[in-house]
Nucleic acid binder design. Structure first.
Lengths: 221, 221
DNA sequence: TATTCATTGTTAATTAAATAACAATACAAA
DNA sequence: TTTGTATTGTTATTTAATTAACAATGAATA
């Protein structure tokens, strides 16, 4: 990859990166259904956004469709993949093989060629040494060693809240490059590590809030 | 609630709503640790945002702290609660009691007074009729009936992708007010229903992307 | 008592994101 | 062949979100 292409990557808005992932996801399903081409307004409709937004994002990544025929799904999937996927397979570890950890493994498993969940960690003796959803589960004590050995670059934290800080520290110490934290406890990591945090309860509370607001609006009418 | 207060609610930026939920979450933990007051820069540090952002959000909801003493944690928790919580308890159903559904129930259970997960639905005969994580699990066939009977206003979808569309339609038909969709299949719902969608894979791909970019930057240096 | 300082609250400025506007074009229909 | 139309690609505009700037203030300190 030359430096011009690199600069395109770095200049892509964060929101566009998210949407590229969503575009690809939707396109893959369309492809499976036998479609070969798709219009911007079709993509937009699937993802609840505007056609302009779609076209603008595709412009940013330098993809051109065909007038009146739309975008070639296969081509677009491939282009998005060269942009958001790493060149080599990126190895991922999940720390915390409870319900959420297993849900994640089963969902991600086999879906993306360039993302491989290669290890799970837990402190439950019943799980250590077993294979959960096709991936081996190790003791937390072996976390640092396995991360180095298996060249794991991304760590997903799905442990109970009280363990979060400790696990994050261990991941950082082991040289992880990116962390996805699903616990309600925000973590602090050095600047060179990319951190993404998501709390399901915040999403639920957001829904509850807007439901409440719409109900109050109804009442006052 | 008078119409002036209503207007404040409606004018709050979407991002502020999300942060209010995060503020409260962080404040509750601080409160449990025995703290009584907190500075804007402390909240900011916990949530990886700026102190100005915190102060601005609190200004928007009309809360004033004490100079050099910070914000009263208890007061702030209460105020945020009056803003984002509904007056009456809001009932929630989870459709799909697999790993993700159970993770959600266990996580949300007992955490928020105004949010109650009161029913789970699944099509697995082994689960139907049982109690999973303290909530009863019903057959999908009874979904519509139960939603009306139990006055359920929010539905969380955590089923396999292929069932998503059908479940969403059932929820809409049953008169649900808000939907939180955790499946990778976006759903279409009428305008009066608030919809929030989240795909864990997109978060993971985002982390992978930024890890990749930072690595390429390193290489080129 | 006067001065310094840390902190809040608020307006102004900036940046990021989304939307609107519209030219270009190729296909279809007349 | 001409006209109309649907669609792309791109620039301009608007809106939303964040950040900067700074006045106000009251506690701590000299």
């Amino acid at each position: 990859m030359n430096s011009q292409e690199e600069n395109i990557l770095k200049s892509l808005p964060h929101k566009t990166i998210e949407r590229l992932s969503q575009y690809r996801r939707a396109l893959l399903f369309c492809f499976d259904e036998g479609k070969t081409h798709i219009f911007s307004h079709e993509i937009a409709r699937i993802l609840h956004i505007t056609p302009v937004q779609v076209r603008r994002d595709l412009m940013l990544i330098g993809y051109s469709g065909t007038l009146r025929k739309g975008y070639n799904i296969q081509e677009l999937i491939d282009l998005i993949s060269t942009i958001i996927d790493s060149h080599e397979v990126m190895n991922v570890a999940i720390v915390g093989m409870g319900d959420l950890g297993r849900a994640l493994v089963n969902y991600v498993k086999g879906k993306r060629h360039k993302l491989a969940i290669v290890a799970g960690f837990d402190n439950n003796p019943d799980k250590i040494g077993t294979v959960v959803a096709d991936i081996p589960c190790y003791s937390i004590e072996r976390l640092s060693k396995m991360i180095r050995e298996k060249n794991i670059q991304i760590g997903i934290i799905s442990v109970p809240r009280s363990y979060t800080t400790d696990i994050a520290a261990k991941l950082v110490e082991a040289g992880i490059k990116g962390i996805l934290n699903f616990t309600p406890k925000p973590v602090n990591v050095p600047d060179h590590i990319y951190l993404e945090e998501y709390d399901m309860l915040t999403s639920l509370e957001k829904v509850a809030f807007y439901v409440k607001v719409s109900q109050e609006k109804e009442k006052s009418e």
